[in-house]
Amino acid sequence: MLRASRRLLRPGGRTAFFTIHPAPGLSSRRRRRAHRDGPVAVASHLSQRDLLERGGFVDIAETDRTVEFATVARAWIEQRDRHQDQLVEALGEAEFEQRQREARVQLRAIDDGLLRRSLLVAVCPND
Protein backbone atom coordinates (compact mmCIF):
# COMPACT_ATOMS: atom_id res chain seq x y z
CA MET A 1 0.00 0.00 0.00
CA LEU A 2 2.61 2.53 1.08
CA ARG A 3 5.02 1.40 -1.64
CA ALA A 4 2.23 1.98 -4.15
CA SER A 5 1.53 5.42 -2.70
CA ARG A 6 5.21 6.33 -2.88
CA ARG A 7 5.42 5.27 -6.52
CA LEU A 8 2.22 6.97 -7.63
CA LEU A 9 2.68 10.31 -5.86
CA ARG A 10 4.50 13.13 -7.58
CA PRO A 11 7.44 14.68 -5.71
CA GLY A 12 5.91 16.88 -3.02
CA GLY A 13 2.61 14.97 -3.17
CA ARG A 14 0.83 14.13 0.05
CA THR A 15 -0.73 11.06 1.57
CA ALA A 16 -3.16 10.99 4.48
CA PHE A 17 -4.80 7.91 5.87
CA PHE A 18 -6.48 6.35 8.84
CA THR A 19 -5.22 3.01 10.03
CA ILE A 20 -6.24 0.59 12.75
CA HIS A 21 -3.36 -1.11 14.54
CA PRO A 22 -2.46 -2.99 17.71
CA ALA A 23 -1.46 -0.76 20.61
CA PRO A 24 2.30 -0.63 21.07
CA GLY A 25 3.96 -2.74 23.74
CA LEU A 26 1.41 -5.55 23.81
CA SER A 27 2.40 -9.02 24.94
CA SER A 28 2.31 -11.68 22.23
CA ARG A 29 -0.95 -13.01 23.62
CA ARG A 30 -2.66 -9.62 23.65
CA ARG A 31 -1.31 -8.82 20.17
CA ARG A 32 -2.82 -12.06 18.87
CA ARG A 33 -6.13 -11.08 20.42
CA ALA A 34 -5.90 -7.64 18.79
CA HIS A 35 -5.50 -9.26 15.38
CA ARG A 36 -8.18 -11.84 16.10
CA ASP A 37 -10.79 -9.43 17.46
CA GLY A 38 -10.05 -6.41 15.31
CA PRO A 39 -11.30 -5.70 11.81
CA VAL A 40 -9.60 -7.52 8.99
CA ALA A 41 -7.58 -4.45 8.18
CA VAL A 42 -5.53 -4.40 11.39
CA ALA A 43 -2.14 -3.21 10.29
CA SER A 44 1.21 -4.95 10.39
CA HIS A 45 3.64 -5.36 13.25
CA LEU A 46 5.70 -2.42 12.13
CA SER A 47 4.36 0.97 13.09
CA GLN A 48 2.88 2.94 10.25
CA ARG A 49 5.40 5.66 10.91
CA ASP A 50 8.22 3.12 10.48
CA LEU A 51 6.69 1.94 7.23
CA LEU A 52 6.39 5.50 5.95
CA GLU A 53 10.00 6.23 6.86
CA ARG A 54 11.17 3.03 5.18
CA GLY A 55 9.17 4.06 2.15
CA GLY A 56 11.08 7.33 1.95
CA PHE A 57 8.28 9.66 3.02
CA VAL A 58 9.11 12.84 4.93
CA ASP A 59 7.31 15.31 7.20
CA ILE A 60 5.44 12.43 8.83
CA ALA A 61 2.78 13.37 11.36
CA GLU A 62 0.77 10.88 13.40
CA THR A 63 -2.16 11.62 15.69
CA ASP A 64 -4.04 9.16 17.84
CA ARG A 65 -7.74 8.96 17.03
CA THR A 66 -8.71 6.05 19.28
CA VAL A 67 -11.29 7.92 21.33
CA GLU A 68 -13.28 8.74 18.21
CA PHE A 69 -12.75 5.17 16.98
CA ALA A 70 -14.44 3.80 20.10
CA THR A 71 -17.25 6.36 19.86
CA VAL A 72 -18.02 5.47 16.26
CA ALA A 73 -17.74 1.72 16.90
CA ARG A 74 -20.21 2.06 19.78
CA ALA A 75 -22.53 4.20 17.69
CA TRP A 76 -22.74 1.58 14.91
CA ILE A 77 -23.76 -1.07 17.45
CA GLU A 78 -26.35 1.14 19.11
CA GLN A 79 -27.87 2.35 15.86
CA ARG A 80 -28.10 -1.17 14.44
CA ASP A 81 -29.83 -2.30 17.63
CA ARG A 82 -32.24 0.62 17.32
CA HIS A 83 -33.14 -0.49 13.79
CA GLN A 84 -33.00 -4.19 14.52
CA ASP A 85 -36.41 -5.10 13.09
CA GLN A 86 -35.71 -3.42 9.76
CA LEU A 87 -32.22 -4.85 9.49
CA VAL A 88 -33.32 -8.38 10.34
CA GLU A 89 -35.95 -8.12 7.63
CA ALA A 90 -33.39 -6.86 5.10
CA LEU A 91 -30.34 -8.94 6.03
CA GLY A 92 -31.74 -11.92 7.86
CA GLU A 93 -31.41 -12.60 11.54
CA ALA A 94 -28.20 -14.65 11.27
CA GLU A 95 -26.37 -11.92 9.35
CA PHE A 96 -27.60 -9.22 11.72
CA GLU A 97 -26.54 -11.19 14.79
CA GLN A 98 -23.10 -11.96 13.29
CA ARG A 99 -22.39 -8.33 12.47
CA GLN A 100 -23.39 -7.20 15.94
CA ARG A 101 -21.38 -9.96 17.60
CA GLU A 102 -18.24 -9.05 15.64
CA ALA A 103 -18.77 -5.37 16.34
CA ARG A 104 -19.10 -5.97 20.09
CA VAL A 105 -15.97 -8.14 20.18
CA GLN A 106 -14.07 -5.43 18.39
CA LEU A 107 -15.37 -2.72 20.70
CA ARG A 108 -14.21 -4.73 23.70
CA ALA A 109 -10.75 -4.97 22.14
CA ILE A 110 -10.71 -1.18 21.76
CA ASP A 111 -11.94 -0.61 25.31
CA ASP A 112 -9.35 -3.11 26.62
CA GLY A 113 -6.58 -1.03 25.08
CA LEU A 114 -5.63 -3.54 22.38
CA LEU A 115 -6.65 -1.62 19.26
CA ARG A 116 -5.92 1.95 18.26
CA ARG A 117 -6.69 4.11 15.26
CA SER A 118 -4.33 6.76 13.99
CA LEU A 119 -4.30 9.45 11.35
CA LEU A 120 -1.03 9.67 9.43
CA VAL A 121 -0.01 12.40 7.05
CA ALA A 122 3.20 12.36 5.05
CA VAL A 123 4.86 13.96 2.06
CA CYS A 124 6.59 12.34 -0.88
CA PRO A 125 10.10 13.82 -1.01
CA ASN A 126 11.23 16.12 -3.77
CA ASP A 127 13.79 14.00 -5.59
Partner: peptide
Protein backbone atom coordinates in the same frame (compact mmCIF):
# COMPACT_ATOMS: atom_id res chain seq x y z
CA UNK B 1 -2.00 0.90 -13.92
CA UNK B 2 -0.58 4.41 -13.59
CA UNK B 3 2.81 5.87 -14.27
CA UNK B 4 4.98 6.91 -11.36
CA UNK B 5 4.20 10.37 -10.05
CA UNK B 6 0.69 10.54 -11.53
CA UNK B 7 -1.14 11.76 -8.43
CA UNK B 8 -0.96 14.81 -6.21
CA UNK B 9 -2.56 13.08 -3.26
CA UNK B 10 -3.34 9.57 -2.04
CA UNK B 11 -5.95 8.71 0.57
CA UNK B 12 -7.08 5.49 2.20
CA UNK B 13 -8.99 4.56 5.32
CA UNK B 14 -8.56 1.33 7.23
CA UNK B 15 -7.75 -0.79 4.18
CA UNK B 16 -5.82 -4.03 4.05
CA UNK B 17 -2.18 -3.27 4.71
Amino acid sequence: PYRAGTFDAVVHADVLC
